[in-house]
């Protein structure tokens, strides 16, 4: 199903407005389509609005005006419960910050969204094993996040975003903290997901990601270029 936003505006001040804590940030009349089966890359300098665009698109940040449509319906017309279920079932999100549940092992962290969705534990465990191997962190499955490096945590976050085989994957700076080999593995996996039909949005200022993208946008001052 198609995911797109129309005439989206978002303004906010203070600490959410990029590096300048007093500046107001404005995103004006943005229109954007995230296509299934394609890797879309949005680049831009810090504070240009990349992460805001991603947050609005994946249902985490309500725009001031304009709508985000999924399958023809406005996702922000759903209540919090419906929106959460949509995120769980259809979207896979890799946040800029590597956030994991400190009380769960790598394997449990990755499996969590799928088990929450009520999927079969055995199948989820198999899928989890495949993803961890693919990202070269299979040997870390029993470790806790506190025992991992930044790059390893980033890969766990990516595996977790993909465990539910989402229709859309949103990755905010997915190559941060990764070495060249790690970047290659992560971007290849995202690329592979797109080949399998997922719509992938990568927000990054890493030039390495450019070669993996089908569609590229630049962003500056809250506008897509």
């Amino acid at each position: 199903m198609e995911l797109y936003l129309r005439d989206v505006c978002k303004t906010y001040k203070g600490r959410n407005a990029g590096h300048d804590s007093t500046a107001s940030f404005c995103m004006e009349n943005v229109n954007f389509n995230l296509l299934p089966g394609k890797v879309t890359l949005v680049t831009g300098c810090s504070g240009s609005g990349k992460s805001t665009l991603l947050s609005i698109l994946c249902g985490l940040l309500r725009p001031d005006s304009g709508k985000v449509f999924y399958g023809g319906d406005s996702i922000y017309d759903l209540d919090g419960h419906g929106l959460a279920l949509l995120r769980n079932a259809k979207f896979g999100i890799v946040p800029q910050k590597c956030l994991l549940m400190s009380s769960l092992t790598v394997r449990e962290n990755v499996m969590l969204p799928a088990l929450y969705a009520g999927k079969n534990e055995k199948k989820v465990a198999d899928k989890c094993g495949d993803l961890l191997s693919c990202l070269d962190i299979g040997s870390l499955s029993g470790r806790y996040p506190g025992e991992l490096s930044g790059g390893e945590m980033r890969r766990v976050c990516i595996a977790r975003a993909m465990i539910n085989e989402p229709e859309y994957i949103f990755a905010d700076e997915p190559t941060n903290d990764l070495d060249e080999n790690g970047k290659k593995r992560v971007l290849s996996l995202l690329r592979e997901s797109a080949w399998l039909g997922a719509g992938v949005l990568i927000v990054s200022h890493d030039p390495y990601a450019v070669s993996y993208a089908d569609i590229k946008y630049g962003m500056n001052g809250g506008r897509l270029l």
């Binding site: 985490l60 919090g80 419960h81 959460a84 279920l85 949509l86 995120r87 769980n88 079932a89 979207f91 999100i93 946040p95 956030l99 994991l100 549940m101 969590l112 969204p113 929450y116 969705a117 977790r160």
Partner: peptide
Amino acid sequence: VLKIMGFTVRS
């Protein structure tokens, strides 16, 4: 992060 992965506030 639980909210991001789709946990409802009720959950």
